[in-house]
């Protein structure tokens, strides 16, 4: 146990936790915007898989990370258009539509991978860690917090930006309005469909970034790479009470607990016999924290309700 509390181990644990938290955070921040506008998207995992494959495949062929970044973001955006048409234009039931998107993403990314790649092939270029000048050289703290890949920095930079957009801009006010009372917003001249559509586009693009962070960060793709990560991201939105700061805390909690459990296993502190119980720890702790700590902030009143003037 004493080994665990050395500074180098703690630094490794925090650094790994931040890496693990990154895709959760990107996806959950995007979902926060969507849910604030009243749109539930259970298809996040499917969008992540498609973007993860798309960016991986482009980088595999071109060895250019910028092209991969573009591909991942565009795929997320396009899936946003699809989901927007389904849920906003056709006013479909959002829960079932999201599951359909997830199944489509899961199956189609698998199909594309098998037809276009086949055997898992490591990328020759991947997202590398970049030390932030000045901060990256701070002993221990720099190693833990300021030496990550650019998408990790982007994810955490988006936390205050999303807060700013949601609470300090007209667009953010409209998003919250159509999520709480779309009829009232409509009567005041706000385009409910338009605002929701844009929120969906932003959310899906961020889900695309999350998938890209996974495949380009790992430098490889294989079928079902996300392993249900997108569903946990949706849960983290509830955990974070639809606020970006809360979502960040949830993502970090999940990532750092997962990282801590790995360290405990690696050092034999969690015996092999209890290994499976240890693997459940992040999910269990998150649920417990959700029950114990969750503030009584209610979900957007019109969440998952299609809007129709009729």
């Amino acid at each position: 146990m004493r080994d665990l509390f050395t500074l180098s181990v703690l630094v490794s644990t925090v650094a790994a936790g931040i890496r693990l938290a990154t895709p959760y955070l990107l996806a959950a921040l995007g979902e926060t915007i969507g849910q604030r506008s009243g749109v539930l998207n259970l298809g996040v995992d499917g969008v992540m898989l498609l973007s993860a494959f798309g960016s991986y495949y482009v980088v595999l062929r071109t060895e250019n990370l910028w092209y991969g970044f573009l591909a991942g973001a565009v795929i997320g955006l396009l899936m946003g258009v699809v989901y927007g048409v389904i849920t906003v234009v056709f006013e479909a039931e959002q829960g079932i539509s999201g599951i359909g998107i997830f199944l489509f993403g899961l199956g189609f990314s698998d199909l594309l991978f098998e037809e276009l790649v086949g055997t898992p092939t490591p990328l020759k270029v991947r997202l590398e860690e970049v030390a932030i000048p000045g901060l990256g050289s701070i002993p221990y703290v720099g190693d833990a917090i300021f030496q990550h890949n650019p998408l990790t920095y982007l994810a955490f930079a988006l936390v205050p930006i999303v807060t700013l957009v949601l609470f300090k801009t007209t667009f953010g006010m409209n998003v919250r309005a159509v999520g709480e009372n779309p009829q009232a917003a409509d009567s005041l001249g706000v385009s409910v469909a338009g605002v929701r559509f844009i929120a969906i586009l932003i959310g899906n693009t961020m889900a695309g970034l999350a998938g890209m962070a996974l495949s380009l960060g790992l430098g490889i793709f294989q079928p079902n790479l996300t392993q249900g990560l997108g569903f946990i991201a949706v849960a983290l939105v509830y955990f974070g009470a639809w606020r970006s700061r809360g979502v960040m805390v949830g993502a970090l909690l999940y990532g750092i607990v997962a990282s801590l459990v790995l360290q405990l296993k690696t050092r034999g502190i969690i015996p092999l016999e209890a290994s499976d119980l240890g693997a459940m720890a992040p999910a269990v702790l998150t649920i417990v924290a959700l029950v114990v700590l969750a503030r009584r902030i209610e979900a957007p009143a019109a969440l998952a309700r299609p809007f129709s003037r009729h």
Binding site: Q227, S259, T266
Partner: peptide
Amino acid sequence: VNVTYTGSFGDVALATEAATAHVDA
């Protein structure tokens, strides 16, 4: 031999971090 069971057959991210923890150790 330090053994880490990740609890998953397909979680590449966890396996990556488990291997990193071994190298760090």
